[in-house]
Structures are given as structure tokens and as C-alpha cells.
């Protein structure tokens, strides 16, 4: 089963330091070597917003006011079970400190 884990920005999140980078690097390396982590990346804070309403499509450049809620990173993982993805997310959260992640199963392609 495939899951997408997204991480949201929060005010209280600590600034990343050397230790966090090292631990995160090792974690990503381990998960990649096991074939669990399929893709991961960070996202730019603003981005572009597209809204369609009737025939009209509006394009707006960021940043947006509700930046706190923005997704700042993602990881796509292939796991055996829901419990396994929760365990992986738990390890991830232990490394990054305060904040929120959301986990959703991916269907398809």
C-alpha cells in the first residue's frame, strides 16, 4: 500500500540544525535502502494558486495569508500496513520536533 505523508508548517517548529540534518539524512538513506521511501521533497512556501469558477480560471501568485497551513514537505512511501506507516511517521516526527504531519493512502495509478 502506498501512502503520502505531508508536513505542515507550524510557528513552534524549531529551526533545523546540524543534528537534525544528520539524523534526517540517515533516516532517509535507511528508508531508501529498504525500498520503502519512493519519493520525498520540500516545497516552496508560496507557489501559485489556480481557481476555477464557471468558465473563469484565476491564477494567483503566493505567498498567501494562511501560510501557516501550507504544506512544506512530502514523502511517498510503500508499506506493508497502516501500522507501519504510522511507525515511520513517528520516527520522522521524533527527528523534526514539534509540528503536524498528515498521512493519506494513495490509490491508483
Amino acid at each position: 500500500m502506498r501512502y503520502l505523508m505531508t508536513t505542515r508548517a507550524t510557528d513552534t517548529a524549531p529551526a533545523p540544525d546540524e543534528k537534525l540534518y544528520a539524523e534526517m539524512g540517515a533516516f532517509i538513506e535507511e528508508m531508501t535502502a529498504k525500498g520503502i521511501l519512493l519519493a520525498t521533497g520540500g516545497l516552496e512556501p508560496g507557489g501559485i494558486r489556480m481557481t476555477s469558477s464557471g468558465d473563469e480560471i484565476t491564477v494567483t501568485d503566493g505567498p498567501f495569508t494562511e501560510a501557516k497551513e501550507a504544506i512544506v514537505g512530502f514523502a511517498l512511501v510503500e508499506v506493508r500496513s497502516k501500522e507501519e506507516v504510522i511507525e515511520l511517521a513517528r520516527r520522522f516526527r521524533k527527528i523534526v520536533g514539534d509540528g503536524v504531519s498528515e498521512i493519506r493512502q494513495v490509490f491508483g495509478p
Binding site: K82, E84, E87
Partner: peptide, 15 residues
């Protein structure tokens, strides 16, 4: 929430 035994099982399979 999740069943602790299933959590232990997931950890075990990883380790």
C-alpha cells in the same frame, strides 16, 4: 487508536 500488538508487529517487521 491503533492496536499496540499491531504496532509491535510493524516495528518487528522493520527491525
Amino acid at each position: 487508536m491503533t492496536d499496540p500488538h499491531r504496532t509491535i508487529d510493524a516495528v518487528w517487521k522493520l527491525e
